[in-house]
Design a protein around this nucleic acid. Structure first.
Lengths: 235, 235
DNA sequence: TCCCTAATCTGGACAGCGTCCAGATCGATG
DNA sequence: CATCGATCTGGACGCTGTCCAGATTAGGGA
């Protein structure tokens, strides 16, 4: 393939501080697996899932292409690990957004604002980090939330950090506790809310990329407005 | 790449009636462009966008790989044409679904049912034809509804057949005419509705593929229920 | 009718890709 | 201190998209 839109991001990347541990004392790397995932994430950040190219990842880390196969059975498995990484970064960004939101004093109003801002943070991450969002959402063929099969579990501490869907579920629980949503509707509400924000994100990202920032924000507001009215209005 | 999940779908495909026009009298094909798009669509139907492989497409049609370049500047452009093709097929499937729906006698009720069924048809096509849905939704880098740049326009008759978003917009207009939606909210309602059904489709397809058919249908019902209540309830 | 031009298609080549196999290297364990 | 198992390297293979030059042929002007 001669398709080389950008020559290589290697120089840009390995110029920014040594990765994780020391960068190659000799032969044995030390923490190659994490380095590969990190390099994959940097590639995905710029160019999305298809930018995660095995040989380029190994070039960045400074290792032979086949070194990947001691840690992952296949490139798809490395991508899946990068997807988990991106998912955690997404959740962190959403938490950071939520921390800056001031909620009204009353519980129902606060619960509404909270759900709205969780949704807004979801879409904003997609628009701010399209590459990471894409790998997060199509990197794991088993479905989001399911750990990759071939991975040996490691790093327990960071393994169960909050995922985006966890934040959504928590927001809906708050809505229920505030008396705005019947408890038995939780599952349905989760799917409806997730669909709204995920739909907004993918449409604005993939299908309507020509929209202006103002139009995008209006679409997000509209989607969240109708969602909240649909969830909370009693008929 | 040695990644060959299925050997080849060629035998399956060219066993089913000669494509479009006669299959290769000699040298000049006759209607190669359409044949390429058709073969691409068949590949995508089975294996999604990444199954559209230039050399495999030409193998199916029975032509040298480079023959593609007389009709498309690049493989991505062929994919974009296949995406348009898939989009039209999706709209046709949705119309077929709508034809089987019987609407209530009253205009508001009919408008609600119509929108609900447009949405259901959108998601159902995604689940019934995942490969075509995927190529329809990520095959055109300029955004859905925008014709590919490099394409010479041809076949005017089929060029402006209804697209899925057209059907959605029409359904919302009906809702407005029935007095259930303020006219000035149309744009916002389009984005919200599209987001709901597109989100449901992509989540059920890509992120939660393990859901049972019943769970999927429940999710669709829930999403459309909240959407309609959000759109039509007066506060 | 013939010819010639422009469109169409072929053949061969190239670099890059993911993956496999065999061998080199080395840290930890006995 | 030797050895074993994990880790990494080197080379190869078949596949890919794309480029270049040349072969083929349909269709319109003489």
């Amino acid at each position: 393939m001669n398709c080389w839109p950008e020559v290589s991001v290697r120089a840009k990347i390995d110029g920014m501080a040594t990765r994780s541990t020391r960068t190659r004392s000799s032969y044995h790397h030390g923490d190659l697996r994490a380095a590969l995932v990190g390099a994959g994430a940097e590639l995905a950040r710029t160019g999305g899932p298809e930018a995660i190219v095995l040989r380029e990842v190994t070039r960045i880390v400074g290792v032979a292409p086949n070194a990947v196969y001691t840690h992952f059975a296949t490139l798809a498995e490395l991508k899946s690990a990068v997807a988990q990484h991106a998912l955690r970064e997404m959740a962190a960004a959403m938490l950071s957004h939520l921390a800056q939101v001031e909620e009204p004093a009353d519980a129902p109003g606060a619960a509404e604002v909270h759900l709205r801002e969780v949704g807004r943070a979801y879409v904003h991450f997609a628009l701010d980090q399209p590459g990471l969002f894409r790998i997060a959402m199509d990197g794991n063929p088993d479905g989001v939330g399911t750990p990759g099969r071939g991975e040996k579990q490691r790093d327990f501490a960071s393994e169960d950090r909050p995922k985006p869907d966890t934040l959504l579920i928590a927001a809906l629980r708050r809505l229920t506790e505030a008396g705005l949503l019947p408890a038995e509707e939780t599952d349905a509400a989760v799917m409806a809310s997730w669909a709204t924000v995920h739909g907004l994100a993918t449409i604005l990202l993939n299908l309507q990329p020509f929209r202006s920032a103002a139009e995008r924000e209006a679409a997000v507001d509209a989607g969240l407005h109708y969602l909240l009215r649909g969830l909370t209005s009693r008929t």
